[in-house]
């Protein structure tokens, strides 16, 4: 299968010369098992160009089926959806998967994204067949020839990580998440930064440890681990409650799970290409010095990674 990055940025799109190389579009990754329909993970602004490219294939005539896995519904992960061209072509089928809510149906959340006065085209008027699938963590299902599993992450309002296996290859998309050490992020709004490195209530510490164990188990042996590394360690210490990790956190999960390639992802909006180069180089140096067996790369728009026997 092929994994292609269409948007690698976190929080908000950042156009400009300083982001030309890594790209300024928000989160969107295309996973394409050989000869099969695309599985799209997250629908940030990057999905606009992906959708246009899909219209060159069967989707242009309304004969396409796409699966969209949403990590969570924060803007930077769904804001491209109203600009996804296959939605506007009758005959296409789009299946949207995201975590089940405790308070409302998924379809209502997505419908409110485009209702008046926020967007001129309501969900109900899109021409494609759109079906929403609510997931609970631990769910596993098949999409064409691909097998998908998911587990929850430590992020405000809760995000999901996904694993996709196909063609003898495997990948995990793990964004957005805070490390599992300083604060439990769920539905409550946390206004002041909790102490980093402090002592946690044992019940919370146990919940975080179990969440992390679930992630490490899901990542076991994958060819490619895409990980939220929005923060530097200093940025994390100032904002542990924002729900993002550092490259150090990603390295630790990568080591324990025995993965093959670690991909830095969900770059901070303020990060210039030069700063991102530096973060990549420092992370690679760290892993080389420690003798880690995995490779470290950083996601950029247009990057394509081939996994398994799709050569």
């Amino acid at each position: 299968m092929k994994v292609r990055f269409w948007g690698v940025r976190g929080s908000v799109p950042v156009p400009g010369r300083h982001t030309n190389r890594y790209g300024g579009n928000t989160s969107c990754v295309e996973v394409r098992p050989r000869g099969d329909w695309p599985i799209i993970i997250d629908a940030g602004t990057g999905i606009r160009r992906l959708g246009k490219s899909m219209m060159e294939s069967a989707f242009g005539d309304g004969g396409g089926t796409a699966h969209v896995l949403i990590s969570h519904t924060h803007w930077d992960h769904i804001q491209g959806l109203p600009f996804f061209s296959p939605f506007y072509q009758e005959g296409n089928h789009v299946h949207v998967f995201a975590r089940q809510r405790h308070d409302t149906h998924l379809q209502a959340v997505f419908a409110s994204q485009t209702e008046d006065p926020y967007f001129p085209v309501p969900l109900s008027s899109l021409k494609a067949e759109i079906e929403f699938h609510e997931l609970v963590e631990g769910a596993h299902f098949e999409l064409g020839r691909a097998r998908v599993t998911c587990t929850r992450l430590n992020h405000p309002w809760i995000a999901m990580a996904y694993r996709v296996d196909a063609d003898g290859g495997s990948m995990v998309y793990c964004s957005d998440t805070a490390p599992f050490s300083d604060v439990l992020l769920e539905h409550e709004f946390i206004s002041t930064p909790p102490q980093v490195g402090g002592v946690l209530d044992p019940a919370i510490a146990a919940k975080l440890a179990s969440m992390r164990a679930g992630l490490v188990a899901m990542c076991q042996g994958v060819d490619l681990l895409i990980y939220d590394t929005q923060f530097t360690p200093d940025e994390y210490r100032a904002r542990p409650h924002w729900g993002h990790s550092t490259p150090i956190d990603a390295i630790q999960v990568a080591r324990e799970a025995g993965i093959k390639t670690l991909c830095l992802y969900h770059h901070a909006p303020s990060r210039s290409d030069e700063q991102q180069d530096l973060i990549l180089r420092e992370t690679q140096d760290l892993c080389r010095a420690a003798g880690d067996p995995f490779e470290v790369i950083a996601a950029y728009e247009g990057l394509e990674v081939v996994l398994g026997d799709d050569g």
Partner: peptide
């Protein structure tokens, strides 16, 4: 200056994609 959705990329560097 952009309508509808931010448009990052080298092709919008001069007028801007915001």
């Amino acid at each position: 200056v952009r309508g509808s959705i931010p448009a990052p990329g080298p092709e919008t560097n001069r007028y801007g994609g915001n």
